[in-house]
Write a protein that binds this DNA or RNA. Structure first.
Length: 295
DNA sequence: GCCCAGGAGATGT
DNA sequence: ACATCTCATGGG
């Protein structure tokens, strides 16, 4: 069924943007399995087409289709780097993912690269998630908290999650025992943040990713290595700590700072906007992004 | 071999 | 409050 015709670059948003590590691409279609079942998305002349178990309203919310991204460009029109990044990537949207899978994926993201995060996420889903068969290949749902909580450390290490194994198990246990993941979106940002960082494997940066990509907190501002660099190079921020950088960026960019962060992050990571030369020497330069490294 | 990746936790000052 | 180390794993 047709779910809309808003600007949305499926490959950029679902595969390449490193806010989600779950979708697979096959023959120009994009597939992922959620609680209700598998969904395949594609772009046709008419608009965005969805096949499978489709709750149109839920899908529109997941894809953030009801937000006015043209308005977002207007909000940062007075900030050159931000407005350039937003203008550079029409069709990039910030997803509203289920909090639980966002949490686990970003615990896996710590000191890790995108290709490996996707591979580990895929391994978790194949091993512990519900399987859905269909044309285009099988899709696997995300494991339930209870299922991961019941895992032994060694069986998770066998999937190559490394030292993150105990973080996954303990955090899964906390969630299974009632940690209020679904209430974070309705709480004040700072309260939700303070609560999230009590989970093992969750620091300031991962907490902000969960709040931005999984809880609808548009001002949550994750600062990773790329955002650290671009804030110095493009905004002239000089801060000792990343917490300070996040605070200043939010003060500068406003209540949708997190949404703008996603555009800035991607512009820096792909090289679409150049970082300072002196710093670029130390960075790895262009790297292949967005390929599903599942094997 | 070295450095890096959407960092976090433990320890020491 | 800040600096430094270590933690698996795979790619460049």
């Amino acid at each position: 069924m047709l779910i809309g015709n808003e600007p949305l670059d499926l490959k950029l948003t679902l595969i390449d943007s490193a806010q989600c590590f779950r979708w697979t691409e096959a023959d120009g279609r994009f597939g992922c399995a959620f609680e209700g079942g598998p969904v395949w998305l594609s772009r046709t002349q008419a608009g965005i087409e969805a096949e499978g178990n489709v709750d149109c309203a839920a899908l529109r919310r997941y894809l953030d289709l009801d937000r006015d991204y043209a308005g977002l460009a207007g909000e940062c029109a007075h900030i050159p780097a931000a407005s350039r990044a937003v203008a550079l990537m029409p069709g990039l949207r910030v997803l509203n993912q289920p909090p639980w899978e966002t949490l686990i994926c970003f615990i896996l993201s710590a000191n890790n690269n995108v290709a490996r995060i996707r591979g580990l996420t895929d391994a978790l889903c194949r091993r512990y998630g519900r399987k859905w068969d269909g044309e285009g290949g099988a899709l696997y749902g995300f494991p339930e908290p209870r299922r991961l909580a019941a895992c032994g450390e060694e069986e998770l290490r066998a999937l190559k999650v490394g030292y993150r194994a105990p973080f996954l198990i303990e955090t899964a246990r906390r969630v299974a025992e009632g940690f209020p993941l679904d209430a974070l979106g309705d709480m004040p940002l700072d309260d939700a943040h303070r609560l999230l960082v009590t989970l093992p494997g969750v620091g300031d940066k991962v907490a902000d990713c969960v709040l931005l990509f999984g809880c609808g907190h548009a001002s949550a501002f994750p600062v990773d290595v790329w955002v650290d660099r671009l804030l110095r190079d493009w905004f002239g921020l000089k801060c000792k700590t990343r917490a300070d950088m996040a605070r200043q960026a939010r003060a500068l960019l406003g209540e949708n700072a997190g949404l703008m962060q996603q555009f800035l992050f991607h512009a820096a990571r792909t090289g679409a906007m150049a970082l300072d030369g002196a710093r670029r020497e130390k960075s790895p330069g262009r790297q292949e992004i967005g390929r599903g490294a599942s094997k």
